[in-house]
């Protein structure tokens, strides 16, 4: 039987969710018997191919995030929003209390020790969205895996459920963080 294809990405995130994913340690060996990774920072493949499951970490902060997210949605049968940033905007969304202008001026003009103060405008750089958004505001999200980051056990549970053809669900203990 062919393997289930999984893609992963981190949009405006810290890769903490990916690190937590890898925290499943040796269980990844068993997992790899059933899945293969398409686009993922783990294998450094840059573009998505049609696949079964997309794990999205991070919030939507800039135009590139939107392109990547749309590419995932077009290619994945199931999209899972992973972690606080993808689900709620998380830490990146803290800038939503300020205008984009205030943020850029603080970082590139007013900060002490800034050399050659100007707001970067190179065409290589993706433009920032005026506000940071959770991913479900732009694409349909099928499942949510909460946590900052979600524990490795939660990744294992959700992926195992999907591999077994069940609706993924997390027991209450896995949703308690204190």
């Amino acid at each position: 039987m062919s393997k289930v294809r999984v893609g992963t990405t981190s949009l405006g995130g810290c890769f903490g969710c990916h690190m937590s994913f890898l925290d499943m340690d040796e269980r990844i060996v068993g997992l790899m018997e059933h899945v293969e990774f398409t686009r993922s920072p783990i294998n450094d493949i840059k573009h998505c191919e049609p696949c079964d499951i997309g794990l999205i970490e991070g919030a939507l902060c800039n135009a590139d995030n939107v392109h990547v997210l749309k590419e995932f949605r077009e290619n994945c049968k199931i999209i899972i929003a992973v972690g606080a940033c993808a689900i709620n905007g998380g830490v990146p969304a803290m800038r939503n209390h300020f205008s984009l202008q205030e943020c850029l001026e603080e970082a590139f003009l007013d900060e002490i020790g800034v050399d050659n103060p100007h707001i970067p405008n190179n065409k290589e750089l993706p433009l920032l969205l005026s506000k940071v958004h959770p991913i479900h505001e732009v694409v349909k999200v099928d499942y949510y895996l909460p946590g900052c980051p979600p524990p490795a056990d939660a990744f294992v549970k959700v992926l195992t459920d999907l591999l077994e053809g069940k609706e993924p669900s997390l027991p209450k203990e896995m949703l308690h963080y204190d």
Partner: peptide
């Protein structure tokens, strides 16, 4: 939602 950034960077290219 990119308009503010376009103004701040004075960009209007396809990207």
């Amino acid at each position: 939602s990119l308009e503010e950034a376009r103004q701040l960077t004075q960009r209007d290219d396809a990207e």
